[in-house]
Nucleic acid binder design. Structure first.
Length: 756
RNA sequence: GCUGAUGUGGUGGAAUGGCAUACACGUUCGCCUUAAGAGCGAAUGCCCAAAAGGCAUGUGGGUUCGACUCCCACCAUCAGCACCA
């Protein structure tokens, strides 16, 4: 047989599978369904190794389930709104829409070289009006229920991007996109009321869905529920989780943004207080986080401690945050580390608390999580469907007028005002209520809105009447498995849970969790063990690897490198060469096919069924690495034989098909003249064939292994005979000599242990 | 500081109460080859010339006939959060 040259066979089969629509799914049939999903990608225009790891390995599971007879839905799409498109446009003068759509085309071509079995016919691209129309529809529903609202809050503001940033987008005090230092600024913006759902988003101890503990705990910490009390100190409300320590409260601290500072500040302290507040305002997020040294200023006033009845001083300090609780605390330096540090620095009294105080107050639950600010002063996003009218105020765009399409011609250079404001013809609109001239909202939505519900839309992407058909969604969701990156623990996966619960409350769906199982994948590093990055020059280009070794080898290597969840391993080119070698040996093994498997060749039969069992169970547990190892072991066994059977070779191809779809299709055609191996049935192992008539038994003396003896299966339960056999072993006898056996432990079929 | 995860050969890793180091890479030796590469075969945890034997799964303890695996304490690394009252 001619040599295995991947580039000769891979494009050929990819084209044929596409023409034959081999993986097309019938969504009306959900009896045995599997909805397998990977977080969709941002269309950066280049498919890197991270994408291969993210998409090619779960494709193994999708193909495996299909061969098992499941109706598999495995869609893909693009998270296509967002800043990079706009930045590229500013830099290169290409329109964000053109840049994005051409990148999508390019990436889809690259995706095809992977040989993955995606349902592209259900593709979702979030920057197209047929998708974002429904973002706007959801927004209006939220507005109607009071879940979306206009509010003012201190926000992370990037002076360079001229936009509000979510906490998740601030990295070490800097903007995640441009690296500029983020400052705090009071801004009016659109919010989604995450806090209303905080309690329901908290994970219980034994959740009904299988999500990693790291994700559940991470989300719970982020939500940060704490139960306490609101106490009144002469009109100042404070929040405390330790009301029993109120007798030890020796001063009061207000956040620098607190509204009652003016009331408490006496004339001679006014200058000091004002200059302190000014100084705090000018601090960047980074300075506030790094400068842990306590600072503060005395207002000059006192309030009465309701428990001790003592007059205590009122201070202003930036270690108290306006965004949490009431923005004011009673300081108990005896019980609280931070208060103690402050008291020591400013020489304030520290008195012992009895921990028995019972102040008057009302119970209060506080959350660390804030409402979600979705306003973005940028162009490339979903327009918020709201109109401002001088007469009627803020008016929703009527549902029939959706989508509010993003205008093509705008000046999207950052100028301190939102780019959409420059599209004057678009901004000018007549009020839906009174018909007089009015103006459109010029802010766009955070792209995390787009990705919060895209897996619903995959099921009905072309529906122009409804967000989705309820019947289809009820049949196919929740997802059977959702693969993604650990970086989405606090952002995307939490927001999606929020949207799912909102959809539930709207009556659109009956379930409240959207994924039965979540798997956080690991990370492939550069060959130097560092994160792959262009600036480090350690990026491994998958296209080049595919050219030299083929997509099948790259897929197999990524599956083999370690357990899929959590492994962080460097790319190793000789490791890739190793699996390429394995594929070559599979190719060459076809020359050894002889007669059919002999009925009396029990060992060969056992090896085959053992491998089927192992590969099946390992794929089901997402242990792709050990599934590959199992096939390698079997290949080593088969290679030692002069001749192998049709049955063995076919089984090997079936097991390998999900991992290496091209080479197996080619070999399957060669040996059987059939097509396609990917529509064949997954082999089923036969328990009977796994049975052995002789079993190895470990013989120990004082718990140390001294010999392994073969035991006939029919005497396995006969302790006396086994003991005799064990004593009969020369190696064991050596250790029993001159000793007396105190006890004999026999665990049937596993171990025999002499205690001397 | 809090939360979570992880710790096994030169490397990626396997084994989740019963032969530690499967599988693969790398390395060494041999065969083949004009040569290189590829291919094929053998060896490869550590100590010991070898055998015999002993020692080894971050450290220390415990449970057990038996512990990489379960329990307790500690150390280290990684990730996320962090002046949250």
């Amino acid at each position: 047989m001619k040599k295995y040259i991947p580039s000769d066979i891979e494009p050929k089969w990819q084209k044929k599978w596409e023409e034959d629509r081999l993986y097309e799914v019938d969504l009306s049939d959900a009896v045995r369904r599997q909805y397998i999903l990977i977080e969709f990608s941002y269309p950066s225009g280049d498919l890197h190794m991270g994408h291969w790891f993210a998409f090619a390995v779960p494709d193994i599971l999708a193909r495996f389930r299909r061969m098992q007879g499941y109706n598999v839905f495995f869609p893909n799409g693009f998270d296509a709104f967002g800043l990079p498109a706009e930045n590229a446009a500013i830099k290169k003068g290409i329109h964000p829409r053109d840049w994005t759509l051409s990148n999508i085309e390019k990436m889809k071509q690259q995706f095809k070289t992977m040989g993955a079995s995606f349902n592209w016919e259900n593709e979702v691209i979030t920057c197209l009006p047929e998708y974002y129309k429904w973002n706007q529809w959801i927004f209006l529903k939220m507005l109607g229920k009071g879940i979306a609202y206009r509010g003012k809050a201190l926000a992370n503001w990037c002076p360079n991007c001229q936009t509000v940033l979510a906490n998740e987008n601030v990295e070490a005090g800097k903007c995640w996109r441009c690296g500029t230092e983020v400052i705090q600024k009071q801004v009016e913006q659109w919010f989604l009321k995450l806090t209303e759902y905080a309690d329901r988003l908290l994970w219980k101890d034994n959740p009904i869905v299988d999500w990693p503990k790291a994700v559940r705990e991470g989300q719970n910490n982020w939500i940060g529920k704490s139960e306490g009390m609101i106490l009144d100190f002469d009109g100042v409300e404070v929040f405390t989780t330790r009301p029993e320590t109120t007798d030890g409260a020796t001063f009061l601290v207000l956040a620098p943004e607190h509204s009652m500072i003016g009331k408490f500040t006496i004339a001679e302290n006014k200058n000091d207080v004002d200059s302190y507040i000014k100084q705090v305002k000018n601090k960047t997020e980074l300075e506030r986080k790094e400068g842990r040294e306590k600072t503060g200023v005395f207002t000059g006033s006192f309030v009465k401690n309701p428990v001790s009845n003592k007059e205590i001083p009122v201070w202003v300090a930036d270690y108290i945050l306006m965004g949490y609780g009431t923005g004011a605390i009673m300081a108990v330096p005896y019980a609280d580390e931070r208060d103690k540090e402050f008291a020591e620095k400013f020489d304030l009294p520290i008195i012992k608390t009895s921990f028995k105080a019972k102040p008057q107050g009302k119970q209060k639950v506080n959350y660390h999580i804030h409402d979600w600010s979705i306003s973005r002063q940028r162009y490339w996003g979903t327009p918020i469907p709201v109109i401002y009218c001088d007469t009627d105020g803020m008016v929703s765009v009527p549902e029939k007028d959706l989508p509010v399409e993003l205008p093509y011609e705008v000046d999207y250079a950052p100028k301190g005002k939102p780019p959409l404001a420059t599209a004057e013809d678009w901004v000018e609109v007549s009020c839906p209520k009174c018909g007089k001239s009015a103006k459109r909202e010029v802010e766009t939505m955070d792209t995390f809105v787009d990705s919060s519900w895209y897996f619903f839309r995959y099921l009905d992407p072309k529906n122009s009447q409804q967000i989705f058909k309820k019947e289809v969604v009820e049949k196919w969701l929740p997802l059977d498995i959702y693969f993604g990156g650990a970086e989405h623990t606090l952002g995307h996966t939490l927001y999606s849970r929020f949207f799912t619960k909102f959809f539930h409350d709207l009556g659109l769906i009956s379930f409240e969790e959207y994924a039965r199982k979540r798997v956080n994948r690991g990370l492939i590093l550069g060959p130097d063990g560092q994160k792959m990055s262009k600036s480090r020059g350690n990026v491994v280009n998958p296209d080049e690897q595919v050219k030299s070794y083929g997509a099948d080898a790259v897929r197999l290597y990524l599956a083999f490198i370690g357990p899929y969840a959590g492994t962080v391993a460097p790319w190793d080119n000789s490791g890739l060469n190793g699996v390429y070698h394995f594929l070559q040996r599979v190719w060459g093994l076809a020359d050894k096919i002889g007669s059919n498997l002999q009925g009396n060749d029990l060992e060969a039969r056992r090896m085959m069924h053992k491998t089927i069992k192992r590969v099946t169970e390992d794929i089901e547990a997402n242990k792709f690495n050990t599934a590959v190892a199992g096939m390698m072991e079997w290949l080593n066994y088969l290679s030692r034989k002069d001749q192998i059977s049709q049955d063995e070779y076919r089984t090997l191809l079936f097991l390998l098909a999900p991992f290496a779809p091209h080479i197996t299709e080619e070999l399957w055609e060669k040996i059987s003249q059939k097509y396609s191996i990917h529509q064949a049935s997954w082999p089923v192992f036969d328990e009977k064939s796994l049975e052995e008539e002789e079993l190895p038994l470990i013989v120990q003396v004082n718990g140390k292994v001294r010999d392994v003896i073969m035991i006939q299966k029919d005497i396995i339960s006969n302790k006396e005979v086994i003991e005799k056999k064990g004593k009969g072993s020369v190696k064991v006898a050596k250790y029993l000599e001159g000793t007396s056996v105190k006890k004999i432990v026999y665990i049937e079929g596993k171990v025999l242990n002499f205690i001397v």
